[in-house]
Design a protein around this nucleic acid. Structure first.
Lengths: 204, 204, 204, 204
DNA sequence: TGAGTTAGAATGGCACCACCCGTC
DNA sequence: GACGGGTGGTGCCATTCTAACTCA
């Protein structure tokens, strides 16, 4: 399975999403070798990986030097891909994940681009709402409605804003490696997404 | 006065900062004509301006078509400028503002770049901490300490995370145009920054 | 049923216990009229009742003026009863509850007195551990062991230290009338005691 | 110097206060012979003294048999003194200390009594807040405000709730005789009170 | 014995919601 | 009567501190 993570706006948790989706897959029984190819210019995923070392259950490599011997590949792309690049990414993947926050600019950018890209098959990509205000997902729900009304596929789950994601980033580990109930709650968010992915694309 | 806003990471509130700094200056008595040149590829500031119309006390133009008849110019740059671009921006401005969140990646990117750019004069730029968790300034303070210990100038004030900034974005106005005490608190954050700027660079 | 609450040391939650035991009984289906007779010189229970008014599901009267038409009577006695007074109280009640904290002085006073009062039938009284440090019941368990080893009957449940009991006191209501999960947890402590009482003496 | 400790409610740390104030004075250089007269009916201070033996730097005697050859005398009174008794105690002492917890009943009892006793000279007594929740709690400050607003003198310091006071009681020593940083923190609380006393009444 | 770890409680702040009130 | 603004109440997250346990 090849999963690409791309976004039209920075700071929406693209790298965090790539890391945690890769971790979810790597933790599946019999998942085989999982590789995360870091194509982001900031090399954020590599930095994360270097801090965490062997506490990360998959391999992170430079996006230009992905080895062949993987079972599942997650690609963290540069920000703001051009239209044709995006379509190429999607066509070469089983699934394109587009993290988006409920903030107007982020939502607007996602909507505008995806509405334009009619060539993108609906079963090849899905939007993931991230940095959703924790309390009541009113903002998150509104954003999901807007997207769905435009015919854009959205994950049922969403990732809440949690400072523990920053702690995990600092530690260089996925959130489940941190202690406390908060860490487990945060991980649950990504687990729900992971299950959605596995159910739909797990056989690829 | 020419102020440039640039950042090494997306989603740190670069456009929000440009809008509100411009608004602060435009509201000063006798400030003259204020222009915000939107150089960001997403044209976020222009989009903000178009929604708000005449409720914004300054003019937003395309970054490539800035008129000459301004008294103060604020420039919203594209994300992730290259080193030489950044230095050119700084040398052509009175002040370069670099919004940064306390998140590890954001801080790391800012630190790495600014440590590298020794050619950047210290009186020409300043880091602005944005999206600081509101409850406890511990995260913000830690980030400020890290920056100051590296010899990087940082604004005394900081911008807290507040959903009302998203509301303002949606409305197309600066936060002070919204009602409620929360809006005024949010505006106070930028006012404090504005005063710091005016005190130091107001005569330029 | 007549329940008397007495203690050999102040500040152990005697009034709080009387209020909540009365509340538990009053909330039982078909419990009939419940009266709390405040015999304490500080008139704490009356003060509590006056603050709360009709939010308290039973009646509090002066200990010297208890009406006859009650189904269940709870008596809050003055602190430090003399030996013969205590025995009289116990013989005139179905159950004598002696709240005690795990603090040495409190425990010591309870132990010394009860060891001396061999005339007190074991099925007529029971010690209630109150103000038990919440984190770890070790202090409470030790105190219970000490008491049980001396042949003194102790409730299985215990009342943890919680500031919400002070809030309830200030409001003049039982804790269950306050909001939040903490209030419910605190009420659970007394519910457990209430069930123990009801099971053993409910038919009286 | 004669110091009397009295309270209008049990369980507020009256004996603990008497012990530690006596210990503070006895540890002063050149303080001379310090005697604690235990007038409490429970003989708590005597019990404390008997457990500790010579680890206590002062003498504890029965309140009815205080020797004459003391330099400083601390009196632990019975609980709930009557109005005239209290005034007599105060007039025969240099300082009357009234320990009070921030709990409503305790505060209420202290307020009501002290408001009534206008005959009590303000330079002869002072309220000591005890069993105050940890520093991050505002309960202690609120209680102090209530008292000060009623014109009642209160010590600047306060005694926090700490289980180590129970350990000290069990051991029969002042807290400073126990090991660990917690013990020293607890002792600091009483040291601060002791310094306030010494500064104001030390020459008596 | 001392330091690090863990768990639980209490506080404060923001976001959301429901109600109230004043105005047109 | 409808609408808008303001206010109070609720829920939840982040933080901090204490107490007990663990390990060296």
């Amino acid at each position: 399975m090849i999963i690409t993570v791309a976004s039209f706006k920075g700071g929406v948790g693209k790298t965090t999403t790539a890391i945690h989706i890769a971790a979810f897959i790597a933790k599946r029984r019999g998942a085989g070798r999982v590789v995360l190819g870091d194509g982001d210019l900031n090399r954020s995923a590599l930095s994360w990986y270097e801090r965490g070392g062997d506490r990360i259950p998959f391999v992170v490599t430079d996006g230009d030097a992905v080895p062949d011997n993987y079972q599942h590949l997650i690609i963290d792309t540069p920000a703001r891909p051009k239209d044709d690049e995006l379509i190429a990414l999607a066509m070469n993947s089983d699934l394109l994940i587009i993290p988006t926050t409920p903030a107007p600019f982020s939502l607007e950018a996602t909507l505008a681009t995806l509405s334009r890209l009619t060539a993108l098959p609906e079963d090849r990509y899905r939007v993931l709402l991230t940095r959703v205000p924790p309390r009541n997902s009113k903002r998150g729900d509104r954003a999901r409605d807007v997207l769905l009304n435009s015919g854009i596929p959205v994950f049922n789950g969403a990732i809440q804003t949690r400072t523990i994601f920053e702690d995990a980033e600092l530690e260089g580990v996925p959130v489940y490696a941190l202690k406390g109930t908060v860490a487990q709650d945060a991980w649950s968010d990504y687990e729900a997404i992971g299950r959605e992915i596995w159910k739909e694309w797990g056989k690829s």
